[in-house]
């Protein structure tokens, strides 16, 4: 069976000279739930950014669903990103917008009708247990709520691949478990591939899933 996402001999050296990834070979199957585990600076975020194409590999190739995305032309990037659900490390929410407005952005980009988008957003708010906070501005939310909102935005358009970069970074243990529970449930229900980059060993013990360990830019367990 052909891998859904594949890294072939991927190296990434930043202009500062930092070697973030060194000849990484990795493949992920469709519907897989994966923890990308490693300490800070191991290359987890770089790996995620190579998939979202915020970064390009210095050497090697990244393939997604039969498409060599590492060499994709700039003009096709939006179409790649529409198929992804990404929880960014710094969340990347628009603070001046309301919760609902932030949530429906991927649907608006996909040009889904307003009423349908609102229906899906309300459903997601219920799922996140934030139904009363739809009209709140993001800047009024707590850290955990922002994290949940970011999660909701990543999942609302039902992507086939979800990338979560330290989604539990600012959360207490209970909230962290709840966030990963949502991702786990999403992968199970939608058959999506979910990759969670984390340095939290506790999560690895709680949830079943493949563990890919990175250290100093190299894969040490796959």
């Amino acid at each position: 069976m052909k891998p859904f996402l594949e890294f072939k001999e991927v190296s990434k050296i930043y202009p500062t000279g930092v070697r973030a990834l060194q000849e990484v070979n990795l493949s992920f199957r469709e519907g897989e739930f994966v923890f990308l585990f490693g300490p800070t600076g191991a290359g987890k975020t770089t790996l995620v950014k190579l998939v979202t194409r915020e970064e390009r590999p210095t050497r090697g190739e990244v393939w997604l669903s039969g498409c060599r995305i590492s060499h994709l032309e700039e003009r096709y990037l939006p179409f790649l990103r529409r198929g992804l659900g990404v929880i960014f490390q710094d969340l990347r929410l628009v603070p001046e917008w309301t919760v609902l407005e932030n949530l429906v952005v991927p649907l608006e980009v996909l040009k889904i009708g307003r009423s349908e988008a609102l229906r899906m957003a309300r459903q997601m708010l219920r799922f996140l247990q934030m139904e009363k906070k739809g009209s709140y501005r993001v800047e009024w939310l707590s850290g955990g709520e922002k994290q949940k909102l970011s999660l909701g935005r990543a999942l609302i358009h039902r992507p086939k691949l979800v990338l979560a970069d330290e989604p539990t970074g600012n959360l207490d243990e209970e909230s962290a478990q709840a966030v990963v529970e949502v991702l786990f449930e999403f992968a199970r229900r939608e058959g999506a591939t979910v990759i969670v980059a984390t340095h939290d060993q506790g999560l690895l013990r709680t949830f079943p899933g493949r563990v890919v360990a990175l250290e100093k830019g190299k894969v040490v367990q796959s």
Partner: peptide, 9 residues
């Protein structure tokens, strides 16, 4: 944010 969630230029 719009660019990262897939909005075209």
């Amino acid at each position: 944010v719009l660019y990262l969630v897939g909005a075209t230029f």
